[in-house]
């Protein structure tokens, strides 16, 4: 597996469950060490990370504003531009544990973005977000990239909405099945084999994974 992520690029990892998307993300973040192979990260890079879930315990009293500030340097003020843009204003002074799932996700995104990262890493940012919210999020990501000039790496199950705004899609299934512009990946025979042909934008996710056909790509295991 070999790929490069450049500054200012939006790259989306897609692939079925167990394909290694999260593992790759953890390697990039340094949470896991590669057992084999090489990983080069630009030295002293600022990373903004939006995890899938926070698992915040209500015994720790924290307002949303304080949660955002903890991602910054001590005493660094919050940037009202992103708070407004990402839509966190309304619950800034509310306790973190009282937020809904979607509100918490926006708060996590806001924290990651306010760090002014060189690399923004988003782990399944679409989970539990409705279709309207997804469209909003993609417009937001493009704007974040344009304003900060950062690279964005995200993991998604979603296929079509992602592709509209992504520069490059890497389709994983234990190895890189295929990669390229959204359009080229979409027409790639490997991709079609993995996900099947989908005509409608809101097609229900169907994972057609045929071990026999995949076996020709070398050694990797399936669950």
């Amino acid at each position: 597996m070999d790929f490069t992520l450049h500054k200012g690029e939006i790259l989306t990892l897609i692939g079925p469950n167990g394909a290694g998307k999260t593992t790759l993300l953890k390697l990039v973040l340094g949470l896991l060490q590669p057992t084999d192979g090489r990983l080069w990260r630009k030295p002293s890079m600022t990373i903004g990370y939006m995890p899938q879930k926070l698992h915040h315990d209500p015994s720790l009293p924290l307002t949303t504003a304080r949660f955002l500030q903890l991602g910054l340097k001590p005493k660094q003020p919050l940037d009202p531009y992103w708070i407004e843009k990402i839509g966190v204003t309304a619950y800034l002074q509310q306790p973190l544990h009282s937020l809904s799932g979607g509100q918490l996700q926006r708060a996590m995104l806001c924290r990651a973005v306010m760090r002014q990262p060189d690399l923004l890493v988003l782990d399944e940012p679409l989970q539990g977000v409705d279709v309207q919210g997804q469209a909003h999020l993609y417009r937001l990501l493009v704007e974040i990239r344009e304003t900060l000039g950062c690279a964005i790496l995200m993991v998604s199950h979603d296929l079509h909405l992602v592709m509209a705004q992504t520069d490059r899609v890497v389709c994983l299934n234990g190895h890189i099945c295929c990669s390229g512009t959204p359009q080229s990946v979409r027409e790639h025979p490997e991709y079609l084999r993995l996900f099947g042909e989908q005509d409608t934008v809101f097609a229900i996710y169907a994972h057609h994974h045929d071990p026999d056909r995949c076996a020709s790509h070398g050694t990797h295991s399936h669950d």
Partner: peptide, 18 residues
């Protein structure tokens, strides 16, 4: 203090943030 609060919130997030 701040490190500990961030670790309490989410260890992976704290690690990614340095």
């Amino acid at each position: 203090w701040r490190h500990l609060l961030n670790i309490t919130l989410n260890e992976e997030l704290a690690f990614a943030e340095g």
